[in-house]
């Protein structure tokens, strides 16, 4: 009788700066029978540091290059359909998430043309407005896997780096593994698992976080508290909307929410 092979289990860790550390606190919690790292405020701090370090290089890459890197991530995602399915993510969701990722990848080198442009000022000036990434975005992600992809991809495609508080930990860490095996520079996406109520306030009050996406905050009081804390350094805040329909056309809003418009003037004359 052939011996049944014993499965090798995965350890679900955090994703910070392109690496998979355990929580510095040493804490874990049980999710569907797996021990998952329970991120602490110091993990959040480390993730912000990693995001800040990675962000200028990512924003400085050509838009074409960012698009290519995101497309590569979609390729990796497609290859891991089974893994997500095994975690209970509906196949249709995985497919939609892959397609969404591809859709956003294509925006990398087009958004500036749609969202910026030349301004016809009344004077001898060249005047151009162009969108730029806001910087480091703290994201409280929704539990839906399609939702997770739908909040992460638009934030990073324009050159931001994100610190994500996962809504559903196992698919989120698996997505981290997808990203780690694509060409995305370490630190552009950082994923923390644990309690949003514990971690998110540290992101909301962190001076070096530029914006907050509260889409996945289910607790109304927490959302208000986070928005209030974000006022301290005037972070851009994307508030939780009424139950998002992740299958719908997302429009540009999730990208433009984390963009700054820079307008450059220069005289024209010889």
């Amino acid at each position: 009788m052939p011996e049944q092979r014993l499965a090798v289990r995965k350890t679900y860790k955090l994703y910070i700066g392109g690496k998979f550390p355990r929580s510095e606190s040493g804490r874990t919690y049980l999710v569907d029978g797996s021990n998952v790292a329970l991120a602490s405020r110091k993990d959040a701090r480390d993730a912000v540091l990693a995001a800040r370090k990675a962000q200028p290089g990512w924003a400085g890459a050509t838009a074409y290059n960012r698009g290519q890197v995101l497309y590569r991530a979609a390729e990796m995602l497609e290859g891991r359909r089974a893994e997500f399915a095994a975690l209970g993510v509906p196949e249709a969701d995985v497919d939609a998430a892959t397609d969404r990722w591809v859709w956003y990848a294509g925006w990398a080198d087009k958004l500036a043309q749609v969202h910026g442009g030349a301004n016809p000022v009344a004077g001898p000036y060249f005047n151009l407005s162009a969108p730029e990434p806001t910087g480091v975005v703290g994201v409280v992600a929704p539990a839906s896997f399609l939702g997770l992809v739908s909040v992460v991809a638009p934030a990073i495609v324009t050159g931001n780096a994100v610190v994500v508080v996962a809504g559903d930990p196992l698919p989120a860490v698996t997505l981290a593994e997808v990203l780690a095996t694509s060409d995305l520079p370490g630190g552009v996406v950082n994923i923390l698992t644990g309690s949003p109520a514990e971690i998110a306030p540290w992101l909301a009050s962190h001076d070096d976080v530029n914006a907050l996406d509260l889409t996945g905050v289910a607790d109304g009081e927490l959302a208000v508290a986070l928005e209030q804390a974000a006022a301290g350094t005037l972070k851009r805040v994307l508030r939780p909307g009424p139950g998002a329909d992740w299958a719908a056309d997302p429009g540009l809003g999730r990208m433009t929410a984390f963009l700054e418009t820079k307008t450059v003037w220069h005289p024209k004359g010889f």
Partner: peptide, 25 residues
């Protein structure tokens, strides 16, 4: 949000104006 090269303090209704970071949104 506004960069003036070889000029300064120019304003025009067609030209977007506003800040990054703690200069507002």
């Amino acid at each position: 949000g506004v960069v003036w090269a070889n000029t300064f303090n120019r304003f025009d209704p067609a030209s977007p104006f506003g800040g990054y970071k703690e200069s507002g949104y």
